[in-house]
Amino acid sequence: MHSLVVESLNTGVLLIDSDYNLVYFNHFMRSHPALKRPDVLGKNIFEVFPELPKSWMTRKLQGVFMLDSPAFSSWEQRQFLFKMQHTRPITTNSEFMAQNISMLPIKSETGNSEVDHVCITVEDATDVYFYQEKLKLTLAELERSNRTDGLTQIANRRYWEERFNTAFLSAVRYQEELSLILFDLDKFKQINDTYGHQAGDKVLIESAALIQSMLRQHDVFGRYGGEEFAILLPNTQLQGAYELAERIRIAFANQVVNYKTDSIQATLSIGVVSYHSGIRNYDDMLTRADMALYQSKRCGRNKTTIYQAG
């Protein structure tokens, strides 16, 4: 009766002796291709299952025999020990069965104090594995969308400020160069009024893509307000930031955004500032960039201004 139960369990069961030879396996294990051969009983498990991580598993099994205590392997650390198909090939995309394995000490005779066999159980954890992987992807996607501006797909204000704060603290602490470019689309309200809001959106989207393509990997580009954008430039001096701002200003002025039959052109007003010891906090630095930006507006727009103290 007991053996019938073991045979029909929805869990793999194998029994090995102290030489690691296969003594028994139940029906569940029969789906393993290696067990289709007739002569596997009595053979060493590492010969029968060449996929087993031999040296690690031998050490674990030694522990089970010597310490008379169980050993485990979890899919979280090792997806599987026995390379097997699982039962949900249609509704999961995992190639092999994810497994939780237990190796249990067995004393075959009562009164015998020595462990002489090890029972290995194989639980199918493919479900858990699959949903855990999905959860990870979902969380990563959630994190991404949480810091992205929906329209332009660049950093949103909250995330940009977070990055700016970190970069600012690091600049202060390690005396690193740090520059900031703040810019605003000139007469954006007029674009919206003349061509419609959808045209305005398209200008924002294409402009963001154009500028993003001009940046280095570590620069952080964010949408600061409606038509106001900010670029954080780590390890960049004032001159470098100014040159980049000018390249952006010129490329932007030459850009033509086509919307339906209209060809839309626009310009930018830009403010540039670099970190120096007079700047107390990141708000301070932003304010200065903002002042330079408005200087550009006052001077007739389509212009880059460097913040000057005093």
Binding site: K60, G63, L67, S69, P70, A71, F72, S74
Partner: peptide, 8 residues
């Protein structure tokens, strides 16, 4: 390594 030594 941590799970293995914990178990032991």
């Amino acid at each position: 390594q941590l799970t293995d030594i914990s178990s032991i």
